[in-house]
Amino acid sequence: MTAPALSKTAEWRHRLLRRHIVGAVAAVLLRVAAVAGIAALVLLLVVVARDGLDRLSWDFITSYPSRFASQAGIRSALLGSLWVLGLTAAFAVPVGIGAAIYLEEFAPPNWLTRIIETNINNLAGVPSIVYGLLGLALFVRAMELGRSVLAGALTLSLVVLPIVIVSAREGLRTVPPSIREASLALGATRWQTVWHQVLPAALAPMMTGVILALSRAIGETAPLITIGALLFVPFDPHGPLDSFTVLPIQIFNWVSRPQPAFHQAAAAGIIVLLAVLLGMNAIAIAIRYWSERRRQW
């Protein structure tokens, strides 16, 4: 009659071979997919390094932009980027962490909270140029801040705020509920629980996420062009109300010139921009590594 369920017939062996082949093909395809992402990045880095590495020098970093490609530098753009980044962090981090704490630790689970949550998640996906238009109407015109560092930073704060909130909430969620229960059961108020137990425990993962969210701000170009950041700035921004430019805009400016020498400058500028970005990511990774070594739940 029927063979035992697991007898190793010729047909069974044939099917086994097919199963192994399917598995091997799948593994190869998955590896290709994984390598594709890295390969594109490596290619980009190689091309940029080939074009820009020679152009990169201390002079390049400390010089203002110039009509002459050989003398052009990124001093004002780098300073502008740092100014905008610093102010963006000053606005977005406290507000974002505050909103995250409210949503994670205090908000009652009702329809209003759900509406706020849904909208924050949606806002994280809104194209940044939309924020640029909002910034132009609100900060530049209505609040009469002009094309200033402050207007740029406020606009970028809007861009990164939803991302900061989402990543800060993820950081707070790494603290197990049992810690909150332990604190509340001792007669701590909610705020005492958050301030003395949850925040210290969540600080490292929160900072990691927040830094990664902020690193998005340093690469943003569209919203800053929209609010009217300048393309050519041969002076340092000295305060929040000065006009400014940022690295990506400077690079964009150089790329759009016809002369190959400017393209080299653009490549060198890209290297600086990537260095700033990777530096921020390195800080985030360092914080995560350091905190994971310190505590285990």
Binding site: I179, E181, A182, A185, L186, T189, R295
Partner: peptide, 24 residues
């Protein structure tokens, strides 16, 4: 007061674990 199923000390020093309730 309450003691829970799974030990849940705060990720702090032994001293701070006991002192926390007193402080607050």
């Amino acid at each position: 007061g309450m003691v829970f199923q799974k030990p849940n000390p705060f990720p702090k020093s032994i001293f701070e674990n006991v002192a926390f309730g007193l402080r607050i």
